[in-house]
Amino acid sequence: MVLSGGRRSRRSATPIRAVLLALFVASLGGSCQVQANPPSGPGTDPALLGPPLAWTEVVLPDRARPVTLATAQDGIVIGGVAPVRPEPRLFRTAGGPLTEVPVEPHSPYAFVARWLSIAVHDGQVLALGGARGGAHANVRWTVWRGQLRSAPRLVEQPQPFGVFGGWGAGDLTGVAFAGNEPVIAGAWASDRAGNDVSLWRVAGDRWARQDSTGTPLGSSPDVLNGARFVTSTGDGLALAGSVTDLGGGAIVSVPALWTAPGADGPWTLVRLPASQRIAEAHAARCDDAGCLVVGADGDSLAAWEVRGPTVTRLDVPRLVLAEHASVPAPVVIGDRTYVALPGVLLEGTDGGWHRRPGPEGVPVAAAATSDGLYLVTTEPQDGSHLWTGRP
């Protein structure tokens, strides 16, 4: 790992069930109203400010820039993009030096793909990349599979155009493992109305879309479903997003979580409570006991605990989100949960919630090892950066 000592922030495997319980208990203490960027600057509310982490930038080889992160059993996997072909790159670290994992593109768009999502399970890697092209500049999706153990590598699985593109195609959301089974989530035109939330499953080297119309993933003339995040729950899957209600004379976007015990379902939709007409779940951290979901309720950060059909709205500090902001999935180190926002790291323990200064830029991905936190941030004038910090 190459550590850059010159660039630092100018701001100064616990089971999820234990974390959810601690956060629920902490949330009973009352609501804290705190803006992400108080007018008087950092430090105006000392009760909500914890000690700063020592943030250090991790510089990737070959001038590659970080794009996304995934947690592996023995460390972190970093998806990057380089200025020379092949542009998609993959790195891994267990807290020490970076190791590059060879990538093998085959189709033309794979050589210039940018990672959307990477998932790791038991040494197996599933990745989804995309590059815009063609007459309409639509995203040309590429799917990759590989492994991190003996002879690590990541190889593209070229697919016919109609698998992810063509008439009826929507955007893809991400990848995950349901137990040992790799799954791709996205959207596809519904047979009833709008787009359905859709899943692709693999047989050999070919991916096939599963029909969602008429299931809880499917849309209808009164309800439009949309998922923006997918994650594993162990043997099953969870999708975070929103349900748009079109009836009743008003359009209301309701945060939503879909869960299933396996890749073949059955799916259950859980609506999450919100106070504003426009609200959405952005991401989640889950295991077989439940999920910790983060998102937006109007322009404010929101968090929910979901255990089966039971939903608890957590009383997190009021942090104002920028328009079109997306909150990365929470990460856990020991008994502490972290939610990353621009310039702010929200830390939850059984003693309550605390704000800590975060690194510069807008967080787009977060991951953690047993003793360290990794963040990918972006800045309009300075591109993306990978940071590591230790609580």
Score class of each variant (00 low, 15 high):
9 S>K: 10
26 A>P: 11
27 S>E: 03
30 G>F: 08
31 S>T: 13
34 V>S: 10
40 S>Q: 15
41 G>Q: 08
49 L>S: 07
52 P>H: 09
53 L>S: 12
58 V>S: 11
77 V>G: 07
79 G>H: 04
104 E>T: 12
109 Y>W: 12
109 Y>N: 11
110 A>L: 06
111 F>E: 14
112 V>W: 11
119 A>K: 08
120 V>E: 15
122 D>A: 14
126 L>Y: 06
129 G>D: 05
137 A>Y: 09
140 R>M: 06
141 W>Y: 15
151 A>H: 14
163 V>H: 07
163 V>C: 09
164 F>Q: 13
164 F>G: 04
169 A>I: 04
169 A>M: 07
171 D>H: 08
172 L>S: 10
178 A>P: 01
181 E>L: 09
183 V>Q: 06
189 A>P: 00
191 D>G: 13
191 D>M: 09
208 A>I: 11
211 D>E: 14
214 G>N: 06
223 V>T: 10
223 V>G: 00
227 A>N: 04
230 V>W: 00
233 T>D: 03
239 L>E: 01
239 L>T: 03
247 G>L: 05
248 G>H: 03
250 A>I: 06
259 T>I: 04
263 A>L: 05
265 G>C: 07
275 S>E: 13
282 H>K: 04
298 G>L: 05
305 E>Q: 14
305 E>D: 15
328 P>M: 13
337 T>L: 09
337 T>M: 14
347 E>A: 12
351 G>Q: 10
352 G>W: 08
357 P>W: 04
361 G>K: 10
368 A>G: 12
371 D>Y: 03
372 G>P: 00
387 W>M: 07
